[in-house]
Simulated scan of single mutants.
Amino acid sequence: MTTAKRKLDHIRICLEKEVEGPWRPFDDLSLVHRALPGIDAGDIDTGCRFLGKDLAFPFMISGMTGGHPDTKEINVNLALAAQEVGVAMGVGSQRAALERAEVEDTFSAVRDAAPKIPIVGNIGAVQLRRGGAEVIDRLAEMIDADAIAVHLNFLQESVQPEGETEAKDAIEAIRAASDRRVPIIAKETGAGISREDALSLMESGVEIIDVGGLGGTSWSGVEAYRAEERSDIESAKMGRIFWNWGIPTPVSVIECACVGASVVSSGGVRSGIDIAKSIALGASLAGAALPFLAPATEGPYGVAEALRVYERALRTAMFLTATKSISDLGSAPILVFGRTREFLEQRGFDPRKFAIHREMSR
């Protein structure tokens, strides 16, 4: 099966099937309400900078697609909305464009539609290893990218019959490419990144980590649906067995932030409240993909409308937690309950330190 055809399958399944798991780790988190915020809502500043450019609020439409002519319109609609609202955007894996030059415009059209926002390219760690460090420059030039995400999707690859699971030298490939023309963002795709791997990535020159944790789209689940459609019973069973495998997004944010990484919180971010929770846990930015896919098939308006709902909810959460800026929000108290708390405690973290204002706890 061609890379382009596989990408179309992924889009179709995400539009038609239930691809998220039953557990939402962000529901285990609660920001502390302030009945007397002491600030005016109109004075709140949600702005931030990412990759040297200003954003209206700390958010990125995570990479979804590209590589087939039918996906170009989706990417353009996403880019137009991201440009209008003022958020960053990632593209899906550019592997198909490396294989077939005629589909490059399904990616490059993003920069044409969004000349001012941060654009993040995308390639798999296995393809980086095979293509060498110079592939980063080629991908960046293709879309005038501000950074390239190197995705670590070895869970998804493990349940694909055509999966590529050569992970032995992935960290060496990342290290070799860490000083190219644009920075690398290490990105998981649904299973999260641990403290141990965050340390290895930072030692290899990576400063930004997109955790892509458990709690959002399960690519193992997506592959299960694909396998069922082609009557591959064994692969379908594997996809369902590993549907809920991984590190919950809030846990992964803490694990990566604690070693000094600049963290993008993705994996189940479904509202502006989830953005606020992510920032309070130590993330610099949040990202999501699935909520914007269906609107993007219709045009840019629905995507922009959904983004503005995220922004308004974030602003409201900031008002109700007495945080005037994104920096202030990073010190807001947040309570951790349930399985997420248990996960953190088993990993040696004390969730109570997040429950009081960080200025008070120093």
Rank of each mutant, 00 (worst) to 15 (best):
E172Y: 05
I74P: 09
E311G: 10
I61T: 02
L31T: 10
R352K: 11
D232K: 05
K277D: 00
E203I: 00
A79Q: 06
A41Y: 14
I123N: 11
F292W: 02
R100L: 08
V253A: 02
L128F: 14
G299Y: 12
Q156F: 13
R362G: 08
F57P: 04
S218R: 14
R175Q: 15
C48P: 04
E134G: 11
V159W: 01
F154S: 12
V135K: 03
A81S: 12
S235L: 09
E255T: 03
S266K: 06
I241P: 06
D169L: 13
H357R: 04
I39Y: 08
F242M: 14
S325L: 03
A283R: 01
Q346M: 12
E134S: 14
V110C: 15
A261V: 04
L55Y: 12
L329T: 02
S30C: 10
S108M: 06
R315P: 04
V150E: 14
A140P: 07
G42R: 03
G121K: 09
E298Y: 03
T316Y: 01
P183R: 02
R95Y: 15
I143M: 12
S220C: 14
A332P: 00
E207S: 14
G42K: 07
A276W: 03
A133G: 07
D70M: 05
A276G: 00
R100N: 15
G132E: 10
D144K: 11
Q127Y: 07
A224N: 00
L314S: 01
D40Q: 12
S327I: 09
F319D: 05
M1Q: 12
P69I: 08
V253M: 04
G213A: 09
A125V: 10
A317S: 15
I247N: 09
A304Q: 13
K5W: 14
E188P: 00
V303S: 10
I123R: 07
D45H: 03
T71L: 15
P300L: 10
K168I: 06
I61N: 05
G272P: 00
G86R: 08
P250F: 00
R12T: 13
R270Y: 11
R312P: 05
D179S: 06
S327A: 10
T106K: 11
K5C: 05
S284N: 13
I334R: 02
V211W: 06
A170G: 08
I143K: 03
W23Y: 15
F26P: 09
F57G: 08
R49Y: 13
N77M: 01
G163C: 10
A109F: 11
A113L: 13
G348C: 04
R175D: 14
